[in-house]
Design a binder for these strands. Sequence first.
DNA 1: GACCTCGTAGGACGACTGTCCTAGAGCGCC
DNA 2: GGCGCTCTAGGACAGTCGTCCTACGAGGTC
Lengths: 188, 188
Amino acid sequence: MPAAATRDQIVAAADRLFYHHGYEHTSFADIAGAVGLSRGNFYYHFKSKDAILDAVIDARLADTRRVLEQWEAEAPTPAGRIMRYVEIVLTNRADIQDYGCPVGTLTTELAKLEHSMLGQAGRLFALFRAWLREQFALLGPADQADELAMHVLAFSQGVAVMANAFHDEAFIRREVDRMRDWLSTYEK
Amino acid sequence: MPAAATRDQIVAAADRLFYHHGYEHTSFADIAGAVGLSRGNFYYHFKSKDAILDAVIDARLADTRRVLEQWEAEAPTPAGRIMRYVEIVLTNRADIQDYGCPVGTLTTELAKLEHSMLGQAGRLFALFRAWLREQFALLGPADQADELAMHVLAFSQGVAVMANAFHDEAFIRREVDRMRDWLSTYEK
DNA sequence: GACCTCGTAGGACGACTGTCCTAGAGCGCC
DNA sequence: GGCGCTCTAGGACAGTCGTCCTACGAGGTC
């Protein structure tokens, strides 16, 4: 198999395992087993575990940009786009109840490990933040846009942590409804 | 030194290390170094690492009960008591920015490890949830009390994750103010 | 002084970690 | 057929992990 395809498989498997079991708890052997390669062979594709994490974050950044573009194409109004973001906690409720938010849990873990890639992971949050800020700037006063973006991010993280802790789907729905009501007060 | 005192020291050190660096990332050697004991000696006090975690959670449960009682003694109104909870993200802002919420991050980590002690850690959340529910039941309709308790818990977790990711104290203050305004609409 | 219990130090144990090296299989190109 | 490149398997390596055992020193009791 060409190296690029194998590399993509490794990144995809590592992405899933990092999300499900955490970065530190995922070993080379785990990733190797998931891809079907020998452990020692990894050095040919990635020179370290950190390099895999870097590639996973890059892949997530690319995926996120693609999703944001899609939301912009599908939802005509800023409020509709923001609701797309809010509703991911509902769309991905099964995964979130099992594993939490992929961005939030990774950032939290890397912060505790004092890991050098923490800044890279922070770019995922920053990407959502900037996009939400843009949408809110179209909705109302520009000097509040960033605060409101942070508020929506905090909403999603709070819901994710609680949904993961209590496995309560009705709770997720209620919080999304609450957010929808709140957002409608800002709608032009 | 008597065994009980050493045991307390181990639990206190483990509590701090689990919070700062995570459960899995904290080794016996780390705790031993913090307490000033030899690694092998731990088996005399705890038969496994899980047993230490169990003791840490028990200690946190006891601490939490004590704090909740204190809040009840100090704040005369239910709304005032709820605000005591809301304001812990401000009171503990330094730690939260560095390490997140002790309860939320532990629960998130144990969920990813599929750790048998996850249920024990969940009791910490349940304790806050039940206490907040009681306060809300005094404030308004009893059938909404649990939903509102969950909403306040989600608030604190969202703020903690974001504060940890962005190290933004002004954000914490804004969110607490927002929560105060929201809570005042429920006040009798 | 002899004894016993409590608490401790130090190290052995097997398993596992991330890293790194080496040999070789497979395949296209001259 | 022979060469060279790409990709892989397998294992060595030093280190750390949680666990567990044994020997011993301190302190109180008979």
